[in-house]
Structure formats: structure tokens, C-alpha cells
Nucleic acid binder design. Structure first.
Lengths: 345, 345
DNA sequence: CCTGCTTGTGTGACCGGTCACATTCATGCC
DNA sequence: GGCATGAATGTGACCGGTCACACAAGCAGG
């Protein structure tokens, strides 16, 4: 509110200086909390600031100081559970560090498109966080020009080619391994897997963990069924699996996929977990409320986002040592959708 | 990639000028596509730009020109279906207008907290879009200082107090009305309602539409049950409703709420839609894949987001006339979760 | 041939801050 | 008393662009 009635335009540092009868530099000192300003002067300046409704321009500050106090997050998606919660975590951490968060959505994995997106993000000036869970993200991470501080949220850490990269991740491999072991230990002969689209064909962490558990148990290794991110993909995959009576246990790359699979099984008249056990991934909010409730692997995406920002902050302020690290250990939450196979029941 | 091997620091307009042997102003003309530059000169400048890897600083551009080409979206949530898809729509539209999208999450509805958030967003310089579906958002919308271009995504348009405000919304009232009529026409005596937290106690559009349909049909009007945004709240509400055998039809403020309600009904041994019909709201991706699949009201949140940006763009460039408007008409999607009451079956 | 307009280009100021350095004045110490 | 020292404040340049205007050259018309 402007009590005096008319605010022509936002007041600048020099306007304040004039009003307080000091130099602009003194005003700068006051707003930056510099110690050597006489208390009486400070008072005067603060009064002028208040009176003129002065607010320091973030743009000018960024230009002059070189520090922009902003992060741009590059991601191929913002609506799915995992992505959205990572964003949430980044925002939380950013806000408490007085940073601003911008978002750039990678619409296509096409090389030139991604390059353009990365450039736009880089032009913004601040640091970058790239969610590299998919081909578009992976490519974006590669495409970031040198010299720009960047942190990657990745599926699997690379085998550190040239030193440590500022990356964060969760241990999906172990998570999938545990989930698969859970099903095997219930007595299932083997476990089928409906995969999320992965960042790179070869190193899908979840697939690897699943496979490792099967191999270790000497179980047969079915071909993973390729899914999408949403329930529709799960439904399609589920229909195929439902047609095969030998299938008694299915691990899904995420909870939406699991939902679609469960629906397909239901439509095919197969009971859960009576005929087929289903396990999801991520423990999205709805997993616990499905009928049957869904056994899943809980992931701390928000914490992952916070960690990503923390790492970036360290890089930018080059205070903290930059070390990549996984965040929390995923935790298996057993619910109604998984049980022993019928023959063993 | 830098083929020459070493990029000291990002080249400025004057570096390019020196390399091309022209004045910085000519470089400025080239990058802005000004017509009166001799083709040969333009070539030379472009070559220099390419060679030095010059990219115009968005910060400096914003400061000097006064236009920042950025939107900041203020919202209390980014993970729920509706909010996330609005963001998605805004981003799409923003990207195609070469705008940048920043997000500020309103953590609390507390007045001073909201004010601080709004200030931070305003300091960024660009336009503002406020999602005012909840108390925090509504307050934020009020708190935006005059002179800053802002568009509100609101639940219900105000009865235009002082002229038209730049707002967008969907017609939730009609949507809830239709959904309620659907249930009544199936033969239900009345319809219970589990509400989402609304922006203001009095003018919840969904509640109003529901109530209008009941009144029109001469049905009794049960007290709406207050829910939250997530399935947990629906579960709590559902337990109460499940305990009342007279309840045969429930309308839920969103699909997550409906999920929780369905779970509670199931736990209480009540069949859907045999004993109780359930209708959701928003038609989230999982609605179609639940068992039973959920009757819901489809909302075009992405389109709403795009419209919001379009309106803001019009305000900022003051080209298009600024008129508030609802976007699409919500559409009822009937699925398995709603049917005639048992007595009528 | 001079005026007048267009095309192509350069100069200086400015956007709203920060930074490095200069200056003034009051002390403290020898 | 003279001088180094630190506190308090001011000055000019600069960050990387844009804007308003000046200016030179080319070509038309009178």
C-alpha cells in the first residue's frame, strides 16, 4: 500500500540516498548490513527506504555482483510423483537459502531441442540442476556448457570417469533387489518386471537390481516388459502378463505402472495377491489406499531434491567440498498386494 | 563445446564488437535483428559471435530493457494433480513465448509469510501468476503490490467489484452440479460431499454446485464433510460416511479424496457401486485404472495454465485486451464407481 | 550544386546496483 | 604536537546490455 497516494516508479538506491541525504554507497552498505555505518545514519537510511518503499532490484543486484542466487531445474516432467517431489525438495532448500527456483521443461529428447533448452537455462545466469532420469535429462546433463555450475539428479552414478561429478541419486539398484527378494522369499518361482523408461538402455538401476536378485536365487530371468511412466503403460504390460498363467509375481518400475498392471490383472480375472503378487516402486501417496493396498519401495524424493540443491549451493559458493553422494536408503513397505503364491498358500 | 580449447569468460557484446571491428551498438543491432545493418557487416558480426561463443546475458538484457520475459508462479503446492498440471500448462505457453518460468511455493498461509513470498517474487521483476485455490494463494493474490502485472487462477470469479480482474478459472460450480445430478438421476435419495480445502469458506464453487443440484431436486442437504487434498483425508472422511448406512452416494472434491473414501468403504465392507456410489473430481490419470474405475469430472488444468499465461502475456505486452474468462467446460466421465442404489437395482 | 531523406554506423548516457579506492575526521600513542 | 590508525562516508568505474541521438555517405529532387 502506498499511503501518500502515488508511487511513480520503484525507488532506486540513489533516490533513497537523496532522501536520506547520504551517498548511494552508504545506502548500499545499509541494505547489505555492512558494520561501519553510524547508527544514526543507518536509522535515517532505513527510514527513507521505508518511506519510499524501496526494494533492491534482483536483476541489478545479479548483474553487478555476478551472483544471481537462482537455480534453474531442467526436467522432462513435472507432474509425475518422483519428479514433482524432487522439485518440491529443491524449492524448499532453495527458499531457505534465499534462492529463486526456475523450471525448464525438456519437451523432447531431440538433440538440438535439448541443446536449445540448456542454453536458455544457462543464459538465466544461476546454477543448474538437471534431473537425468530419462534420455532427455541425460542428454541435457551432457550438453551443459563448461563453467556453469551444475548438479545432476541421476539414476545411477557413472563409474567416475574423470573424478567425482556433482551428482545425487538414490540407490535404486538395492531397492529393486530388496523388492525382488521379498517376492522370492514369499515362495515365488521368479519375478517379472515392468520397467519404467530408463535413462540409458544399459544401466537401468532398477532393472539391474531385479536381475541381480533373480540371478542370486537361481531363478529364471524373464525379459523385462517395457512400460511408460503412467498407468496406461502398466495396463498394456499387465495385459500381456495376465495372459501368462505362469506369472505369479510382478515388480513394477513405479506405482502408476503397478496400478495399471493391477487393473489389467483384475480385468483378466486374476486375484491379487491370490493369483499374482504385485509390488510397486516409490510409494506414492495413493499406494497405501489402493485396494488391495500396494506393497512398494519408499523413496525420499524430497530429500533427494534438497540434497541436490545443497550440493549446488556448495559448488556455487565453493564453500563446502563437492562430493557426490546417494541420499537415503529406500525402504520396502509391505502391504496387501504381495503374498505367497497359490501353490504355497 | 569449445574447440579452441579455452574459454576464459563469457564474451560480452563489446568483445564481439572488437572481434568484428564494429561498434557494440552494431552488435546489438545484429542480435536484435534490426533491419538496417549491411549484410556483409552482419555476416562478420555473426561470425564473431559464433567464434567467441557469445550469448546475450538475460540479466543485463532485463536490466537495460526493463522487460524481463519471465513469469513467477506463486502456488501453495506443486505435487497435486491440479496444481502440477496448471504449472505444466503455464510452462508450455511460457516456453513458446520465450519466457522463463520461476516458481515460488507458499509454505504457509500466515500473513507475514505470504507477504514475504510475494515480495520475493515481485523483486524478480517479471509478471506474476498466482494460483488462488487455497487460503495461502488467495492471500497472496491480494498482497501483490500495485503496478506488478498479475494473473490469478481462481476457484470462483469474484462478482467483479471494481471492473474486470485478470483471472482465469474453470466452471467448478457447473461441474459439481452435473456430477451431483448424475448421481441423483441414478436414483439416489441424496448425495454426500467430501470437500477439498477451499480458498474461502463461503464461496467454494464445488460445494455450491453440489448444493444447488440437491436443492433443485428437493433432496435433503447433508453437511459436507471436510477433507484435505490427499487420500488420507478422504480415508478419514470415508470412515465416517461408511458408518452411516443411509449413505448411498458420495461426491468427492478430487480423485485422491475419492480414493481414500473408496478404501474406507471397502474396509467397512461396503461395495462400490453396489452399496455406495462414488464420484471423484478432476479425472486424474489414475482414476480410470482404479478398481472399480472412478467416475469423475474431467478438468483441463493444462489448458487453464496456458490461458493464465496468455492473459499475463497480454497484460505485459498490453497488446491483447485483458478480459477474464473461464476456460473449458468440465466434462463428466462415467465409469464403474457410480450406479443405481441397491433398492433401485 | 545544395537541400533533404534514407541507409548504415558510432557515441554517450543510463538501467540499478557493486566494487575498489580515496577522503575526512576523531583517536591513540610516542 | 605529529603521525599512524581505524571508523564513517563519498567518488568513479564497471557489470552487459539498451536507448536516444549524432553523424557520414549515397542518392533523390528542385
Amino acid at each position: 500500500m502506498n499511503v501518500t497516494g502515488h508511487t511513480s516508479r520503484t525507488a532506486s538506491i540513489r533516490d533513497v540516498a537523496a532522501a536520506a541525504n547520504v551517498s548511494y554507497q552508504t545506502v548500499s552498505r545499509v541494505i547489505n548490513g555492512h558494520p561501519s555505518v553510524k547508527p544514526s545514519t543507518r536509522e535515517r537510511v532505513l527510514a527513507a527506504i521505508e518511506e519510499l518503499g524501496f526494494r533492491r532490484s534482483a536483476t541489478a543486484h545479479a548483474l553487478a555482483s555476478g551472483r544471481s542466487r537462482s537455480v534453474t531445474v531442467l526436467t522432462a516432467n513435472i507432474t509425475h510423483h518422483g519428479y514433482a517431489n524432487i522439485l518440491q525438495g529443491i524449492e524448499e532448500a532453495a527458499r531457505s537459502a534465499s534462492y529463486t527456483m526456475a523450471i525448464g521443461v525438456l519437451e523432447s529428447a531431440d538433440e538440438t531441442a535439448v541443446r536449445a533448452d540448456v542454453q536458455r537455462a544457462a543464459d538465466a545466469g544461476g546454477g543448474l540442476i538437471v534431473i537425468a532420469y530419462d534420455p532427455a535429462g541425460v542428454r541435457a546433463l551432457q550438453e551443459v556448457p563448461a563453467g556453469i555450475p551444475v548438479v545432476g539428479v541421476v539414476e545411477t552414478p557413472a563409474r567416475t570417469p574423470g573424478g567425482d561429478l556433482p551428482w545425487v541419486w538414490t540407490d535404486d539398484r538395492v531397492a529393486a533387489y530388496e523388492a525382488t527378494r521379498h517376492l522370492l522369499s514369499l515362495g515365488h518361482e521368479t519375478v517379472h518386471y515392468v520397467a519404467i523408461p530408463s535413462s540409458t538402455r544399459r544401466t537401468a538401476a532398477r532393472t539391474a537390481g531385479w536381475r541381480a536378485a533373480l540371478r542370486e536365487a537361481g531363478a529364471t530371468e524373464p525379459r523385462p516388459v517395457q512400460g511408460t511412466w503412467g498407468p496406461a503403460g502398466g495396463h498394456t504390460a499387465g495385459r500381456k502378463l495376465a495372459a501368462d498363467p505362469s506369472v505369479t509375481a510382478i515388480l513394477c518400475g513405479n506405482d502408476d505402472l503397478a496400478l495399471g498392471v493391477m487393473r489389467a490383472l483384475h480385468e483378466a480375472g486374476r486375484g491379487i495377491p491370490g493369483d499374482v503378487s504385485v509390488v510397486g516402486f516409490d510409494d506414492a501417496p495413493h499406494a497405501a489406499y489402493l485396494t488391495p493396498s500396494l506393497t512398494s519401495v519408499r523413496q525420499d524424493f524430497t530429500g533427494l531434491g534438497r540434497a541436490a540443491f545443497g550440493l549446488l549451493h556448495g559448488v556455487v559458493e565453493q564453500s563446502a567440498p563437492v562430493a557426490p553422494h546417494p541420499v537415503s536408503v529406500p525402504e520396502l513397505v509391505v502391504r496387501e498386494s504381495s503374498g505367497p503364491p497359490q501353490s504355497a498358500a
